[in-house]
Nucleic acid binder design. Structure first.
Length: 207
DNA sequence: CTCTCGATGCGCT
DNA sequence: GCGCATCGAGAGA
């Protein structure tokens, strides 16, 4: 049912199930009493120590600690000294995995979002992991936050449920790592959505 | 559309 | 000190 907040059991599933299942759902940020929200249209999975593109590949550190923690929490980090990336932690405690939220279709509080991230093009408001964090007022103050409890200022709601053929996959964007990590199709997008970030040419339709 | 480049803070094998 | 799971501006085609 649309509007219902996702609970911890959703995030506790296998990461490669959680990532595509997040597509179509609604990311909601309560910012100064206002609902800022967008539809999740693009995500990436990072799972296990063997994933050479994962921040967890070298084991637990102060930064990546949330990835080893319980599912349903945020993992937010600073990248290139000026942007933030939002992940939602998946699977069991001790197993490092998370889903990176890469793009949103703006839905609610668009005027406020445009103040937080001034841009003339609606298409650029939340297209990209750094951009969507700016538009929703997300930074490291929200790191390790439980998005399943009733009073958290950030959560994911039920919204659209997509058929498998509406989902396209491809290699992850902007990552380093070994050949396997560069090729594995762990990027998931809503096929033909005008709201996804760069790299459309590398996508293939889901089978 | 493509590409290249610089900005910038911080955690790290 | 190095290297980022990025973005925006500028140049070229």
């Amino acid at each position: 049912m649309p509007g219902k907040r996702l609970k911890q059991d959703f995030y506790a599933q296998e990461t490669l199930r959680v990532a595509p299942a997040l597509l179509g759902k609604r990311l909601v940020r309560l910012w100064q009493g206002k609902r800022l929200a967008g539809r999740i249209v693009e995500v990436e999975a990072y799972t296990g120590r063997e994933d050479q593109s994962s921040h967890a590949r070298c084991g637990p550190t102060a930064r990546n600690a949330p990835m080893f923690g319980p599912p349903g929490r945020t993992y937010i980090y600073l990248i290139y000294g000026m942007y933030h990336c939002l992940n939602l932690v998946t699977e069991d405690v001790g197993f490092p995995a998370a889903v990176l939220i890469r793009a949103l279709e703006p839905l609610e509080g668009i005027e406020t979002q445009s103040q937080l991230r001034p841009t003339h093009a609606l298409n650029d408001l939340a297209r990209g992991p750094g951009r969507l964090c700016q538009a929703l007022g997300i930074d490291r103050q929200l790191n390790a936050l439980d998005v399943c409890t009733a009073n958290s200022p950030l959560w994911v709601e039920e919204d659209l449920t997509l058929p498998p053929e509406a989902i396209a996959t491809g290699p992850r964007i902007g990552v380093r790592g070994d050949a396997a990590a560069l090729q594995v199709p762990w990027r998931f997008v809503i096929a033909k959505s005008p709201w996804v970030s760069r790299g459309k040419s590398t996508l293939a339709r889901n089978s």
